[in-house]
Design a protein around this nucleic acid. Structure first.
Lengths: 117, 117
DNA sequence: AATAATACTTTGTAATGCAAGGTATTATAT
DNA sequence: ATATAATACCTTGCATTACAAAGTATTATT
């Protein structure tokens, strides 16, 4: 059985991404200062994370609605399709720190479990 | 703002546990060979992971239904409340390996994102 | 003129963590 | 002897999110 082709594994993977994707967006925006959906999709893909458009765009909207991000429309200098650029808000930065801590806690828990006797 | 008290953070944390809890159960059962719900709750708590009863018991049922676990009822030797003991199935072991790989992939992706320029 | 690429949006479905409440048995304290 | 706590498991309903699929609009390429 090749796990990657297993439906049950794919479903689990979808669930496993919940919450994780928000953290990825926050970290990417911390590094980039500012970015937009399409660029983030490519950034994630380069980092080994392929996610669906229909996942990212609603995610960005939710995160803004929650006050973690701010956004503004911007048209490329020469011409080109307008882009919605997102930035971290103060709350977004605070939350990102908490999330990174939670991430480390999870790592720590898993390590503990692996060492169970 | 203390993140732990923030509702928006708590909600995120619930989402973040999705998928992760399955991996924890699989790893704990790999180490323990055999265990039951109530004991797993304590094991997780000792490992720094507090989860709700109403989360774990349905989770164990689902995992068995999916064929990842097998179970049998057992009553303590002296007397005591009967317990449903769970064990990893062959499929469960295979899937656990795939999940651990996915976990590492996520770690790797996050590291990449943290190093973005 | 047609196609591809860029860029974002919307809708419906499946899945899961959690709170809250419930059942039953055994052990402990009064 | 009685009440309480601890052990052990189960069920229901809710809120949330990843995804597939389909859609809109603009710009670039063939």
């Amino acid at each position: 059985m090749a796990p990657m082709e297993n439906i049950t594994y794919q479903k689990w993977l979808s669930q496993f991404r919940k919450g994780y994707l928000e953290l990825c967006v926050l970290v990417a925006l911390r590094q980039r200062k500012s970015s937009y959906g399409f660029e983030l999709l490519q950034t994630f893909e380069n980092a080994g994370l392929e996610i669906n458009e229909g996942t990212l765009y609603p995610l960005l909207n939710r995160m803004q609605k929650n006050g973690w991000l701010t956004s503004r429309w911007e048209t490329p200098v020469d011409s080109g399709h307008p882009r919605r650029f997102y930035q971290l808000s103060k709350e977004g930065k605070t939350l990102m720190s908490a999330m990174l801590t939670a991430y480390q806690d999870h790592e720590h828990t898993l390590t503990q479990l692996k060492e169970l006797k």
